[in-house]
Amino acid sequence: MIEFHDKSIIELYVNGDLKTVAARPADTLLFILRESLGLTGTKNSCGNGDCNSCTVLLDGWPVKSCLMLAVEAVGHEITTIEGLQDVPMQKAFVEKSAIQCGYCTPGMIINSHALTTIYPDASDEIIEEWLESNICRCTGYKEICEAVKSVINM
């Protein structure tokens, strides 16, 4: 006997590849990225939109994947941390010692990378405004800001 579930097949364009996944309408993008696509670089920390650990890019703009439904991402270009390969921001985080436990790092790097792509000359105020969304519990944010600024001044 065949049973039908409330899952639908959707296509997501992730890190340059078109991926087919089965998703419930209520599945978050975060869940599908991690559980169905194995892209565990994107982190869950609050699941509630408060910490930005789950940030991914949607057409180049940062979004919290824990607050977005997977079905909403259909037709958009999604970039996760795995989709950034040796971009200047990643190097800057390593060199400026902006990483401790690393759990906030994917969200931080994704957000910072988007910031410097969208505002290549971002002022300190803009940097602060963008990074306010991300919680890091390990650092005092100083090295993170230095990393972002070093990319802007490149």
Partner: peptide
């Protein structure tokens, strides 16, 4: 010396596996 952390590169790439990163 200001040695770069041995775990930094993997963490920056999002490739470090934490305990719940299992599918």
């Amino acid at each position: 010396k200001n040695v770069i952390r041995v775990d930094a590169h993997d963490k920056a790439a999002g490739r470090t596996k934490y305990n719940s990163d299992v599918t």
